[in-house]
């Protein structure tokens, strides 16, 4: 699974950081979108489907953990990576327990992030294939 085959939504209230990141991702052929708040992320996901969401943990308004909770409730197959400048063990583990794929800390190398995106996309693709196969190979008895 190449990262170029999947779409990613970045959510970060630091506009400068967000824009730089989007630019660098586009240069690497990743299909990316960016919004600057948790609320906007949820609105965005209603219209557009993505494979991975990269979430800043500390944002004004709806914070990263709340947003993660909402995303996982509405779209359990989307993989969410937490990205933060604020290292906190509790927040990290809380995020992981809520189903985040990983918890990364700024500053981070762009390749590092790409690898994570790749892994997260692959995780999602595998999960979907498996479920699709089970669905198709085992029709329910009353459907016969």
């Amino acid at each position: 699974m190449r990262v170029g085959d999947c779409s990613v939504l970045f959510v970060d209230d630091e506009i400068d950081f967000l824009e730089t990141l989007l630019k660098r991702m586009r240069k690497r052929q990743v299909e990316v979108f960016g919004v600057e708040s948790g609320e906007k992320a949820l609105v965005f996901l209603e219209r557009t489907s993505v494979d991975v969401v990269v979430l800043d943990v500390k944002m004004p308004g709806m914070d990263g953990i709340q947003t993660l909770r909402e995303i996982k409730a509405r779209y359990p197959m989307i993989e969410v990576i937490m990205l933060t400048g604020h290292a906190s063990m509790e927040a990290a583990i809380e995020g992981m327990e809520l189903g985040a794929f990983d918890y990364l800390m700024k500053p981070m190398h762009i390749d590092e992030l790409l690898y994570k995106l790749e892994d997260a996309c692959k995780r999602k693709e595998i999960q979907e294939t498996k479920i699709a196969l089970m669905n198709e190979k085992a029709p329910a008895p009353d459907e016969r």
Partner: peptide, 23 residues
């Protein structure tokens, strides 16, 4: 687990749940 935490997600349709039960 995913369903417990999040309630039945749209992707798990009724047929799917039946399959899981049978498995």
């Amino acid at each position: 687990k995913a369903m417990q935490t999040n309630g039945p997600p749209p992707i798990f349709n009724v047929a799917m749940l039946r399959i899981l039960k049978r498995l």
